[in-house]
Design a protein around this nucleic acid. Structure first.
Length: 569
DNA sequence: GCCGTTTTCGGCCCGACTGTTTTCAGTCG
């Protein structure tokens, strides 16, 4: 992903400039641009159409640097900067409690160039002579190094939800807590999160803070104040709690939900109107009077815009859309009428088809497609032709017994290395739903992988492409695809692209969903369940769809039983 | 370095907590 490579370089440039003590606004411009680029998956399209400066935060200068990187793989300005400040010093900034000023001090006074040198110096007491450094600072640096060493992996959304729930449950039992909510990137439902933010209402913040820091889940307290504290949970996740009064809950929730760039843009808009936004409310600069604070709705309303759902708050056009009253009406969990990608014990799933059907029915669904692996995927118990026959018979029998619910006979079919499907067309025609997927040959070229998926779309029996980019969080990166080609093929052949709700997949990614939607592609939100408990992952799939600005109409499994029969090929 | 209902210059979001100071700079979100 070129956009992420450039984003990282801009971020590094900002850090080097900060160490050099350059103009803070120039530094912010690089940081802002780095953030903006994270959300642009088709940066080459912007460059080719000469539209780079359409991206907020990208002007003439940065556009030229992006073009330079796309054509040469380098940004000469960055190469020059690295001559001045060794790149290794940026490593020091990863240590919590070390920022640019400290990094500069460590490099200039002691020639410390990396974390292992820093650890050695700290343990030998050699940092103590430095200006403003005493025992406590050294202690914090060593703690910080321990945190970096433990690894900075981001938490998957499901684990983060579990940790947050445990804290919230414990705090909610206090009579001093009037209300408590998750905020931060978890409320925005980002695929992975770095830390967990929790916001509470209470008139007795000190009591709440004491309870929070004393939670059974807490391993270490990193900061404890009257209204704000940070702890590390037993599994090493940072959890922040902020306590405010009921009057400022809306403003605090907004501030604490972010994203940072969303907040900055709102605050900038407010400044132009002679207002100031902080976590306590919107205030008139002149009269100091509070104009709105209790709910998020009244704040957005005051700013002259529609309420913006948390999943959209990334400063990728949602504020402009809200001002023009052009926000989409986002899909909701209860719009979903069925799950089209579920594994049974015929392949590598745990439950019987009857159990799956019952669980789906009790969720209020009208249908489920039991789509086990195809024969080639032996490791996952892919079904032979005789298995298929047995499975079809069982489904037919169950369907005769079930009322107001239908089990579809489905399969998740292997796309082989040249784009052919595992079963022949005569067998494929038998299925109610065919989901095609790549599970091997990830290292092929972008062209080969694209051709495989496009070929699968063109097969008249294929209804859905499962987990289209194959990424597994923390294990495997996406394989490379020409998305323009894939989206076009999906649109032209009326093949839905899957949004896979399984927490370590969540694939397609939100930015790609949005790009595909603009090309007119339809989607299926599935769970890829391997046991009935996994059916709950639908909420994560729907969250990704919402982050991709999808409406009910964009998603095929919001269709009623009658309607979806018309969709499938 | 970006940006514009204060438009080509002169602004640029805002506050809590910590450690080391004795009023504040640095870090973080």
């Amino acid at each position: 992903m070129k956009n992420l490579e450039i984003s990282r370089i801009f971020h590094s440039i900002a850090q080097i400039l900060e160490i050099k003590g350059e103009n803070i606004f120039r530094i912010r411009a690089y940081e802002r641009a780095a953030l903006a680029l994270e959300g642009i998956d088709n940066i080459e399209d912007y460059a080719n159409e000469d539209k780079l400066t359409d991206i907020p935060g990208i002007g003439q200068d940065l556009a030229a640097k992006i073009k330079e990187y796309l054509s040469s793989g380098k940004i000469s300005y960055f190469e020059d900067l690295k001559e001045e400040i060794p790149e290794g010093i940026l490593e020091l900034l990863k240590v919590p409690s070390i920022g640019p000023k400290t990094a500069k001090l460590l490099y200039e006074k002691l020639k410390i160039k990396n974390i292992s040198m820093l650890e050695k110096f700290a343990k030998e007491g050699k940092l103590l002579g430095l200006e403003g450094v005493k025992e406590k600072t050294v202690e914090n640096i060593l703690k910080g190094i321990a945190i970096v060493k433990r690894g900075s992996e981001r938490l998957d959304i499901a684990s983060a939800c579990e940790i947050a729930d445990r804290f919230i449950k414990e705090l909610n039992s206090l009579k001093e807590v009037k209300r408590i909510e998750v905020a931060g990137s978890l409320r925005r439902m980002k695929e992975t999160v770095k830390d967990i933010d929790i916001l509470a209402i209470s008139g007795k913040p000190q009591k709440v803070m004491d309870a929070f820091c004393g939670c059974g889940e807490v391993k270490e307290i990193t900061a404890k104040g009257i209204t704000k504290s940070s702890v590390l949970s037993k599994d090493g996740t940072q959890v922040d709690l902020r306590v405010v009064k009921a009057d400022s809950f809306g403003a605090a929730l907004m501030y604490f939900t972010g994203s940072k760039s969303h907040n900055i843009k709102l605050r900038t808009l407010a400044v132009r109107k002679g207002w100031k936004i902080n976590e306590y409310g919107v205030f008139s600069v002149k009269t100091k009077k509070c104009l709105a604070s209790k709910t998020e709705e009244e704040i957005y309303d005051l700013l002259g815009m529609r309420y913006i759902e948390p999943e959209l708050r990334e400063d990728t056009g949602e504020i402009e859309a809200a001002l023009k009253n052009k926000l989409p009406k986002l899909i909701q969990l209860n719009d979903i009428k069925g799950d089209l990608h579920v594994h049974s014990n015929y392949s590598d799933g745990k439950n019987t088809i009857a159990e799956i059907a019952q669980a789906c029915k009790s969720k209020g669904y009208e249908y489920v497609a039991v789509s086990d692996h195809s024969e080639a995927l032996k490791v996952a118990g892919g079904l032979s032709l005789s298995d298929l026959k047995r499975k079809k018979n069982e489904i037919d029998k169950l369907n005769k017994k079930m009322k107001n619910f239908v089990i579809f006979y489905g399969s998740e079919i292997e796309i082989d290395s040249s784009g052919n499907l595992d079963y022949n067309n005569a067998i494929l025609q038998e299925f109610d739903f065919v989901i095609a997927a790549i599970h091997s040959g990830f290292k092929q070229s972008k062209e080969q992988l694209t051709r495989r998926i496009v070929k699968a779309c063109r097969n008249p029996n294929v209804d859905i492409i499962a987990h289209p980019t194959g990424r597994l969080w923390g294990t495997r990166d996406s394989y490379e695809l020409d998305f323009e080609e894939v989206f076009k093929a999906a649109k032209d052949t009326n093949t839905a692209l899957e949004i896979n709700g399984f927490p370590n997949r969540l694939d397609l990614a939100d930015t790609l969903i949005r790009a595909a939607k603009e090309k007119g592609v339809k989607f299926a939100i599935d769970t890829d369940s391997h046991m009935t408990e996994h059916l709950d992952y639908m909420k994560f799939g729907v969250a990704m769809a919402r982050r991709g600005w999808l409406q009910k109409e964009d998603v095929v499994n919001t269709l009623s039983l009658k309607q979806i029969l018309k969709f499938k090929k």
